[in-house]
Amino acid sequence: MNLQLARLLHLASPALPVGAFSYSQGLEWAVESGAVTNEALAQQWISDALHFALARCEAPALIGLMRAWQAGDSAEVQRLNAEFIATRETAELRAETLQMGYSLARLLRDLPDMPDRIRETHAGMTEIAFPTAWAAAAAHWQLGEEDAATTYLWAWLENQVMAAVKLVPLGQTAGQRMLVALSPALTQLAATAIERADAQDWENFTPGMTLASSQHETQYTRLFRS
């Protein structure tokens, strides 16, 4: 098997012990409020978040961080990490990326093939965003930017679809239909993320998602942590 393919599958796997399955990023409140009540609405919600949040902010940050890790520029890693954390507009979104980043950094620390410079850079950071830790692994494993961005977007998409299946609720076949419908856009969205990283043009204007996340903080009954 191609080793790089195996590495991509490793990073995209729901078995990666970072707790991604426990977050909905406001989707749970959207269901509770009646904004998302069926498959079509769930697909639209996820598609909007994918296009306007992930491809415009999180994925470009990932690419920028990969480049900083590849260059061995710890100061730039820390700068981009702080900049990304500043884009998390609610307490839950901030806690999510920090918890997942901490968990992944701890995992990378225990993997035997990770170089000391990654461990040392992580050790010098009080807060580690999830894209920062993910980018460290992708850079060390010499994954291509387009493949890495596509894989990162796929992992997010799969997690959101499975959250929708549980919350709306929907059947497993509906979840698969959404994945088939939304996944063709990933290649172009990855290219968009790379272009934005080239221009250092991150944009995180997602008021609907932010409102949903903030409302979720006080939601009475919850399955998810965001």
Results as ranks from 00 to 15, higher is better:
Phe224Ala: 09
Leu182Ile: 02
Ala137Asn: 13
Asp48Ser: 14
Ala12Met: 06
Pro112Asp: 07
Trp202Met: 13
Arg94Leu: 09
Leu98Lys: 06
Leu41Cys: 02
Glu58Arg: 08
Thr87Ala: 03
Ala185Thr: 13
Ala137Cys: 14
Ser24Phe: 01
Leu182Asn: 00
Phe21Ile: 13
Leu41Arg: 00
Leu50Arg: 03
Thr121Gln: 04
Gly72Cys: 01
Phe21Glu: 15
Leu179Glu: 03
Ser226His: 05
Phe52Asn: 12
Thr90Val: 00
Pro131Met: 02
Leu182Ser: 04
Gln200Val: 15
Ala49Ser: 08
Asp48His: 10
Pro184Ala: 01
Ala164Ser: 04
Arg222Lys: 14
Arg106Ile: 10
Thr87Gln: 11
Trp134Phe: 14
Met114Pro: 04
Glu146Pro: 14
Arg79His: 08
Gln44Asp: 06
Gly208Tyr: 01
Leu9Gly: 08
Glu83Pro: 13
Leu5Asp: 15
Gly124Asn: 07
Phe224Asp: 04
Leu223His: 14
Pro17Arg: 00
Leu54Gln: 09
Trp202Phe: 15
Thr126Pro: 12
Ser103Met: 05
Leu98Ser: 05
Asp113Ile: 06
Ala191Gly: 11
Thr90Trp: 03
Ala191Val: 15
Leu153Val: 07
Ala35Asn: 07
Leu3Trp: 10
Gln172Met: 09
Glu28Thr: 05
Gln99Asn: 13
Val168Arg: 01
